[in-house]
Design a protein around this nucleic acid. Sequence first.
RNA 1: GCGGGAGUAGCUCAGUGGUAGAGCACUUCCUUGCCAAGGAAGAUGUCGCGGGUUCAAAUCCCGUCUCCCGCUCCA
Length: 511
Amino acid sequence: MAVSNQPSLDLQTLTSLCKRRGFLFQSSEIYGGLASTWDYGPLGVELKNNVKAAWWKHFVWERDDMVGLDASILMHPDVWRASGHAAHFSDPLVECRECNLRFRADHLMPWKVYGKMGRQKDFLGYVTDINPEWSLSDEADSWHYALARKRGYKDHVAKPTEKSVGELIDSSDIPCPSCKSVGSFTEPRQFNQMLTTHLGPVQDDASLTFLRPETAQGIFVNFDNVITATRRRPPFGIAQIGKAFRNEITTGNFIFRTREFEIMEIEFFVKPGEDNEWHERWTRECMAWYTELGLDQARLRLRPHEPDELAHYSKATSDIEYKFPWGWGEIQGIANRADFDLRAHTQASGQALSYFDDAAKQHVVPYVIEPSAGVDRAVMAFLADAYTEEEAVSAKGKPETRVLLKLHPTLAPVKVAVLPLSRNERLAPTAREVHHLVRRSGAIDGLVQYDDAQSIGRRYRRQDEVGTPLCVTVDFDTLDDQAVTVRDRDTMTQDRVAIEGLAQELRRRLE
RNA sequence: GCGGGAGUAGCUCAGUGGUAGAGCACUUCCUUGCCAAGGAAGAUGUCGCGGGUUCAAAUCCCGUCUCCCGCUCCA
C-alpha cells in the first residue's frame, strides 16, 4: 500500500476539506466574506480546543513553575504607550505611484518646524534635520518639545496633521528616493497595526483605546498581583491563552496570517544572567511539544532572528517554523525580552515591578523569556501534517484514494465513532446503548459520535477524513456475544472487544 | 497597497450571448451486511455582489467584494 503523507497537499485541498467537513468557514460568507477572517466549525472548534487544552495541560498543570492568567483584551491606552507599541505601530506612509515602493512620509520631506519665543514665531528647522526616526503621529509631540527645549523655546507649534503632511508632499518637489519620479506620491496614510476602538458612547479621542496586539502586556501589568497572590519567585512563568488583533497590511495563506488570532503565550521570569540558558531551554521544550503531538520533525526547524529583524523589545528571538504547503512559516517565537517591559511599565506607571531576592537582599527586575505560539497556526500545522492520502484497492478491486487525518488522538475532534453495521432495527437499540455507555462513561475526553447513514465502509472513510482514531462497530454477533469490533484509523485493523469495560479499553487505546 | 490568476450545487469543475450542467457528496426506500457496493427516487443554484449594454447576459462592459500566487510589509 503506497502511503503519501501530504507531498501533493496544496492549500486548496486543505481549505476545501476544512469547509466540507466543518473545520473552518469563511467569516460572514453570506455577505461575500470579510478578508482574512475565519470561523471554526463544529469539528474545528473541537480541534482548536484540544490544541489549547493540550498546551495548558503540558505547560501549566504538569509544571511546578507556572501559573495561569486570563487578562482582558481591552487595557488602559497607557499600557501601549509604555510598551512601545503605540510608537512602533503608527506610521504615516506614502507610496510612489511609479515604482510602488513605500516610504514614511515624515522621512521624506523637509517639514518645517516653528516655535514661539514670547509672541514671535520662529523657524526652528526641518524635521529631517532633527531626527529621521521621529514620526508625525504618536511621537509627534516629542520632537516639537525636544527641539523647542533645545533652542530654549517654551511653546511648540500645533501638531501637524496627516492632511498637512499631504499638502506639503503635493506642493513639494521631493523626488522618490528610488525611481526619482517627482510628484508621484500618494496621500500619506496611517498604517497603524493596532486596531482601535472607542470605549463609551462618544467617539472622541479621550475614549480611544486599542485591541491588544499581543497578550504579553496583560501578564506584565499583572506581575505584581501574581507574585503577591501566589508567593512565586523567579524562575517561574505566567501562561495565558487569548485573542490578539493586528491590522496586518498583508494577510493570507488561509488562517496563517489573520487580523484576529489567538495566542498561547508564556512570560517566564528569570534571574538576570540566567536568561540565555532559559531561552535555549524553552526553545527545546517548545519544539518537543509539537513533536510529541505528532508533528513531523522533518517539517519543523528552528530559525534564530537576525539582529535587524528583532522586535523593539527583544534581545534575541528564535522562531519555530513549520513547512506549510506554501513553504516555511513561523508557528512560534521564543523571545528574550530581557527586562524591557517590566522596566517600561515601572517607569510609566510608577509602580515597582520587581521581586525581592532573599539571597542577594535586594529588589531585582527579572528578565523575561517569552515562548509565544499561534493557536491558529498550530491548528493549521497539525491539520496539514495529519493530511494523508493512501492508495488502496477497493473491495471491488478498483484502485482508490483513502484520505485520512492522522491526528494525534489527543487532538482528534472526534475520539470515537459508534457505528451499527447497518441501519437495521435489530442492531439500532444495542448500538444506541453502546454509544450512550461510552459517551457517559467519563473515560473519553471528547466527542463520541453515532452514525448509521450509508454503508459501513463509507462511514469508516468519513471518520478517516476527520481523523477519528477509533470506530466501534456493532454487528449481529454483538447481540449474542456482547462484544463489538474496534477499528483503528491508521491500520484499519479490527479487534473484538467486550462491551463490558469497552470505554476503559478505548481510553487505553487513545493514550 | 501593487501585479497576475480565479469566483457556477456542499466539494471539484464544464459551460464564450439564446431553457443552469456533470462527477463526487447529501436525503429516502429496496437489496446487502466490515472498509467510498448495487438499484430506484429526490433535494440542492439570487452563476460572489451591484450597475450597464442587449429582444436576450453565467457569458460582453464598468465598479466592488472575496480567495490564491508573486511583490511589499511583518513590533
